[in-house]
């Protein structure tokens, strides 16, 4: 088990390195520098700026400098927010994004698994069809459609909830962002749970359990739930990535000053170091969370654990 974990950990390092190399090269292959669109600077000042951002060094030198910085958690200075380092910006914006993301994942798992189990146990009934149609709709409708429509409905028309972030306080302003972020994942998880529970309930070992006189509740709890939730656990990796992507939209729609908003602003302003830093930070986050999911999978499935 320890070996398995260590192997996974080792496997993650080249992936992360590849991310850093690709992202770095992409940014440095950019036509023109980051200061192109500003007024023409006197040569001395241009040289000073270049020296400050180490633009006068060779590419390998710059990369090495950048990489050793990243390892220490230093993503260098921001091009646009002149008084801040990228790390400071990430550090200030990420906790809020984390809170919203974690809440919506929690919501998605609870509601998704619950709905999936109900649909599986009531297979081909009205309840099942309703859950599955809603889930299909949830999968199909993108988050940037869901979020504004929810705002339109609950904030603009009904005035039940605040539409934006600033000027509001408390948990009410969290509700719409968390729900919009969770909805697609709820849909995916519900479909996945249903399909895999139906699959498990059709397996031979469940037939054995039925032959032993176990009722459906006992079968689901004792025999079926764990194997049925394994695919849901593997889905956590992609789900986390999707929630990160979605948080960009949600923060944009609701005006939440989280990491996603910094990312989009950075992208629109061509703040290279900020965008580069956030991409690497997101990548590391996804890779680490995937690693945790993998290890958890190994803990739960005895056939992997005993390898």
């Amino acid at each position: 088990m320890l070996r398995y974990t260590l192997l996974r950990l080792l496997g993650a390092i080249p992936t992360l390195l590849l991310v850093i190399v690709l992202a770095f090269l992409l940014v440095h292959a950019a036509p023109g520098g980051p200061f192109d669109d500003e007024r023409v600077l006197p040569p001395e000042i241009a040289a000073n700026i270049a020296a400050y951002y180490h633009l006068d060094e060779t590419l390998p030198q710059q990369f090495w400098r950048y990489l050793s910085g990243v390892v220490r958690g230093d993503f260098g200075p921001s091009y646009r927010y002149r008084d801040h380092t990228v790390s400071q910006l990430i550090g200030s914006a990420f906790p809020l994004s984390l809170k919203i993301g974690a809440l919506s994942m929690l919501l998605a798992v609870i509601v998704g698994v619950g709905a999936g189990i109900v649909a599986a146990l009531r297979q081909n009934t009205v309840a099942d069809r309703v859950v599955m149609t809603v889930a299909m709709t949830g999968i199909s409708i993108p988050i940037f459609v869901v979020a504004p429509v929810l705002v339109l409905l609950f904030a603009v028309k009904l005035h039940w909830l605040p539409a934006g972030w600033s000027g509001n306080a408390g948990y009410a302003r969290l509700l719409l962002p968390v729900v919009s972020l969770a909805l697609p994942q709820i849909a995916y998880i519900a479909r996945l749970t249903r399909a895999s529970l139906i699959d498990v309930l059709g397996s031979d070992f469940v037939r054995t359990a039925k032959a032993q006189g176990l009722g459906i509740v006992a079968i689901v709890r004792f025999h079926a739930l764990k194997p049925a939730l394994l695919p849901v656990l593997s889905f956590m990796g992609p789900a986390i990535a999707a929630v990160l992507t979605g948080s960009v939209v949600v923060e944009e729609v609701f005006g939440i000053p989280g990491l996603g908003q910094f990312f989009v602003r950075g992208a629109l302003n061509r703040d290279y170091t900020l965008v580069l830093g956030i991409v690497i930070f997101y990548a590391a986050l996804i890779i680490v969370l995937n690693l945790i999911v993998d290890v958890l999978y190994g803990v739960i499935d005895p056939r992997i654990r005993h390898r």
């Binding site: 991310v19 690709l22 990535a241 580069l276 991409v279 997101y282 990548a283």
Partner: peptide
């Protein structure tokens, strides 16, 4: 394992 969508955004920026 890569956050592709962010790469695409990076690509669009660059």
């Amino acid at each position: 394992a890569m956050p592709f969508i962010f790469f695409v955004i990076l690509l669009m920026v660059v």
